[in-house]
Amino acid sequence: MALDDKLDGMKDQAVGKTKEVSGKVTGDKQTEAEGKAEGLMGKAKEKFGDVKDAASDMAEGVKEKLKE
């Protein structure tokens, strides 16, 4: 479900940002890098959810056109 992808992506972005900031504050470059990577993965998941929504909407539109 696209909503699950979006929510999972938002969660990953929040966790990633927390790790990134924590790494900056403590000077831990590895944690900072992991946080950035996790945030990027979260954005990708969220965009994937958007694409799935758009594809679903398009499929519904095609079904409606075929019914006419």
Rank of each mutant, 00 (worst) to 15 (best):
M1L: 05
M1E: 08
A2K: 00
L3G: 04
L3I: 02
L3Q: 06
L3M: 05
D4L: 08
D4E: 08
D4W: 04
D5G: 06
K6E: 13
K6S: 09
L7E: 05
L7Q: 07
L7F: 03
L7V: 00
L7C: 03
D8I: 04
D8S: 09
G9V: 00
G9Y: 02
G9F: 03
M10W: 05
M10S: 08
K11D: 00
K11H: 07
K11M: 03
D12V: 03
Q13I: 07
Q13R: 09
Q13K: 06
A14H: 11
A14G: 08
V15T: 04
V15G: 02
G16L: 00
K17T: 14
T18Y: 14
T18M: 13
T18P: 02
T18L: 12
T18N: 04
T18R: 10
K19L: 13
E20Q: 14
E20H: 13
E20C: 02
V21P: 01
V21E: 07
V21I: 15
V21A: 06
V21N: 00
V21G: 04
S22Q: 14
G23K: 02
G23Y: 12
G23D: 01
K24D: 04
K24R: 13
V25R: 05
V25D: 07
V25I: 14
T26G: 08
T26A: 07
G27C: 00
G27P: 00
D28F: 02
Q30M: 14
Q30V: 14
Q30N: 15
T31A: 06
T31R: 08
T31V: 06
E32L: 02
E32R: 04
A33G: 04
E34P: 00
E34N: 10
E34L: 06
E34M: 08
G35Y: 04
G35T: 12
G35R: 03
K36W: 09
K36R: 06
A37D: 15
G39W: 05
L40D: 11
L40G: 11
M41T: 10
M41Y: 11
G42R: 00
G42A: 06
G42I: 00
G42L: 01
K43V: 12
K43E: 14
A44Q: 05
A44W: 08
A44D: 10
A44V: 07
A44L: 13
K45F: 02
E46H: 09
K47Q: 13
K47H: 13
F48E: 15
F48N: 15
F48G: 14
F48I: 14
G49H: 01
G49E: 05
D50E: 15
D50R: 03
D50T: 06
D50Q: 03
D50F: 10
V51L: 12
V51W: 07
K52Y: 10
K52I: 13
K52D: 15
K52G: 11
A54W: 08
A54R: 07
A54C: 11
A55Q: 13
S56G: 13
S56L: 02
S56M: 05
S56N: 15
D57M: 04
D57W: 03
M58P: 06
M58D: 14
A59G: 09
A59Y: 11
E60H: 15
G61A: 00
G61E: 01
G61N: 07
V62M: 07
V62K: 10
K63N: 10
E64F: 10
K65L: 14
K65W: 06
K65R: 12
K65H: 12
K65N: 04
L66Q: 10
L66D: 06
L66M: 13
L66N: 12
K67Q: 01
K67P: 01
E68R: 11
E68G: 15
E68T: 09
